[in-house]
């Protein structure tokens, strides 16, 4: 019988499958890094993993704490600077990058900056970081969403997807032709973008999820692929790799943080330090 998996694992594996052998890959922290390590270990050994802080062609050792965590690398082939990491992307050398989603609209445009009035925000999110630059110039961008939301209209436009849809992104002449988000992977399913309208389309559903479950998060009438299929469940090999490489990623941030904090405070308490 196949191993049971967590939704985090399913998401990481779906992300890893987007990486092809020999791809030049920009990895953001968290789930993409684990996915990058998985891809490299199992099906894309020659993928070139890069981080925007300037680590080029790194071998993952442990899951990094952030996008400048050189100590999480077993070594890397080239130490360049952030400026060059981005101009490398601008020049078209990056095949694929991964971005997290705060808010997303139907054409894959993103907000990771603020909720409410930008100048006096209800919620101040982290900001662009490298997101707007990467999704603009990477050949493909895969979006991942845990805890983000689908909205009719972004409260702040941080990163460009397909703008108003159709051929608007290509037509405006500001982006490489054919670039833009290719997939959105959530804990419920996988979305692609229609080749003509560029509207997101549900293409795969994770096991146990219904269209209704997905539609209730989406404030517009969701387009569903005629070939809608079930997401291929992770193999035992994939699950084993993730649990071994990044047990916290398998658990998900919330549970991992809860357990880590409890562990720290337990140790401190035992020492009479709290």
């Amino acid at each position: 019988m196949a191993k049971k998996y967590t939704l985090n694992e399913l998401l990481i594996i779906a992300v890893a499958r987007e990486i092809n052998n020999y791809d030049n890959v920009i990895l953001g922290v968290g789930l993409p890094t684990t996915a990058g390590a998985l891809a490299k270990a199992l099906h894309a050994p020659q993928a070139n993993l890069m981080m925007e802080a300037g680590m080029i062609d790194f071998e993952p050792l442990i899951p990094p704490n952030h996008i400048a965590d050189a100590m999480a690398c077993k070594g890397y082939a080239c130490a360049t600077d952030l400026f060059t990491a981005f101009t490398t992307t601008y020049r078209g050398f990056v095949d694929i990058c991964f971005l997290g989603v705060g808010q997303i609209d139907k054409f894959g445009n993103l907000n990771t900056t603020s909720i409410g009035d930008y100048y006096k925000p209800d919620l101040r999110l982290p900001g662009s970081g490298g997101a707007a630059d990467f999704i603009s110039y990477s050949k493909r961008t895969v979006l991942t969403m845990r805890g983000g939301e689908f909205v009719e209209e972004l409260e702040y436009f941080t990163s460009p997807g397909y703008l108003g849809g159709g051929d608007e992104r290509d037509r405006c002449g500001l982006f490489p032709e054919g670039s833009g988000p290719t997939k959105l992977i959530t804990q419920k399913g996988i979305f692609a973008f229609d080749p003509a309208t560029k509207e997101m389309v549900l293409v795969e559903m994770h096991p146990g999820i219904t269209v209704k479950d997905i539609q209730k998060d989406v404030p517009w009438e969701l387009k569903i692929s005629e070939n809608l299929s079930a997401t291929q469940p992770p193999s035992d090999e994939e699950i084993d790799f993730i649990r071994k490489f990044a047990p916290a990623a398998a658990m998900g941030r919330e549970l991992a943080t809860e357990v880590a904090f409890a562990n720290l405070f337990k140790v401190l308490e035992a020492r009479g330090k709290i």
């Binding site: 952030l82 400026f83 981005f86 490298g130 630059d133 603009s136 703008l163 500001l174 982006f175």
Partner: peptide, 27 residues
């Protein structure tokens, strides 16, 4: 963005008055 911020420093570091950045930011 990360690049735009860094570009301001690169201009400053090299004594230029500005730096070109990626045009996609306009949208």
């Amino acid at each position: 963005t990360n690049f735009n911020y860094n570009a301001r420093l690169m201009a400053g570091m090299h004594g230029f008055s500005f730096m070109q950045v990626f045009e996609g930011i306009m949208v």
